[in-house]
Design a protein around this nucleic acid. Structure first.
Lengths: 219, 219
DNA sequence: CTTTATTTTTAAGCATACCTAAATTAGCGC
DNA sequence: GCGCTAATTTAGGTATGCTTAAAAATAAAG
């Protein structure tokens, strides 16, 4: 049985559901770049499979089984990303796309072997936590977007949004990587763009970029 | 575009064609465990794609493009097998199935990176040669099946048929691996089964098994 | 609270990759 | 070369996962 599509739906739901764990078909359709009608179709199937709670025109939620499945996909994805980056030296802006394909083609045993080889990593190259074999997520630091900071704040980069390759390669280019310390020198009221110091150099980033880089404030 | 099926057809044709490079639909169907009708269907598509030369009721051949594609699939497969075995320590009877899935989900760039990491291996864990980036196969020893040997022959194991997991794990169990030297002590006329010495121990193998283990005679 | 806009679902249809059953062609013994 | 058997192709059909267009339900605006 080929589950690639189903796995993509579950991952999308898991990733983009709100605080109550709910998501609207529309958002799934956008995320997967398919029609709303296709989403309705698949939701009925996933519901029959017991992976989502679905009632017409009502909010969509993962069942416990669905959430476990999705979390396992996230685990596979992040372990592959970590492997590709650490072992093969593939840059953090390229690992996402490769992992996206590999995650559908690997047995749990294989993922476990890779995890072991990597000595049980707790986060992927973008700073996202990796669920363990039982689905438990490691405790991780509380992340704040740079855009939430104020003038003179000092902070350490701990996570970067991994969904946009262009963003990632741009971020690398200006010298930002996990663990780096930044200082907010100024915020432009006009458009919210920010002037930071990093590596003793001043760089200017737009608000949109600032809201995709997450940090931990240093007191 | 999803090419998994097409890739499986090309690999099967490449692997099981005869000395003239030809293969019959029937054999493809058996190999892929599907109906003859499905094969006819797909052959027409592969022909339109310019990957096989196909005319109704005539022999089937890969085109140059089809052969290159197939050889690249073999390359992916064998590099993955080598990686799984050497790096992750997965036994040779399990690498085939994992590689079968991974080979459809990896870019050429990824395969090249793995190849580099493995320092350009020339053969996979079962002794099959790995095509290089240009499709060139490394020169390898001339392999003879054990079943072709005669009494008192001495030989080194250099290749083992990798398509049957049960066979591989059985072979391991009796102590056979690549590089091991065997001695033919006796051949039973009744059923062609053979008595070998390996690791200073005598083992008896059926003719069927003997014909799936390939060696190089030691003079 | 009613009208309008948006979201979601239904309906009908398409491509892929398979299936079974029937028809056709090829290959072989004699 | 004839007849039988096996291989191959055609015909018709199925499940999956999409599509667009229309209908139905919900959400938003005044």
């Amino acid at each position: 049985m080929n589950n690639i599509s189903k796995e993509d739906y579950l991952s999308a739901i898991y990733k983009f559901r709100d605080e109550d764990g709910e998501i609207k078909p529309n958002l799934i359709a956008e995320t997967l770049a398919i029609s709303n009608a296709a989403v309705t179709d698949m939701l009925r199937k996933l519901s029959t499979d017991g992976l989502v709670d679905y009632k017409k025109y009502k909010g969509i939620k993962l069942t416990v089984e669905g959430e476990n499945y999705a979390k396992n996909m996230v685990r596979r994805h992040r372990i592959w990303e970590t492997f590709l980056n650490r072992v093969l030296g593939i840059s953090w802006d390229k690992v996402h796309d490769e992992a996206e394909k590999l995650e559908h083609s690997s047995s749990d045993e294989l993922i476990n072997k890779i995890e072991e080889y990597l000595d049980f990593p707790e986060s992927d190259p973008h700073g996202y936590p990796i669920p363990d074999r039982k689905g438990k997520l490691p405790k991780h630091k509380i992340a704040v977007a740079i855009s939430e900071l104020t003038k003179s704040d000092k902070a350490e980069v701990i996570r970067v949004n991994d969904t946009n390759q262009g963003l990632l390669s741009y971020i690398s280019k200006i010298g930002i990587e996990l663990g780096k310390v930044i200082l907010i020198k100024d915020i432009l009221a006009f458009d919210g763009s920010m002037l930071l110091t990093i590596n003793n150099q001043d760089v200017n980033i737009s608000k949109a970029i600032a809201s995709n880089i997450f940090v931990e404030k240093i007191v």
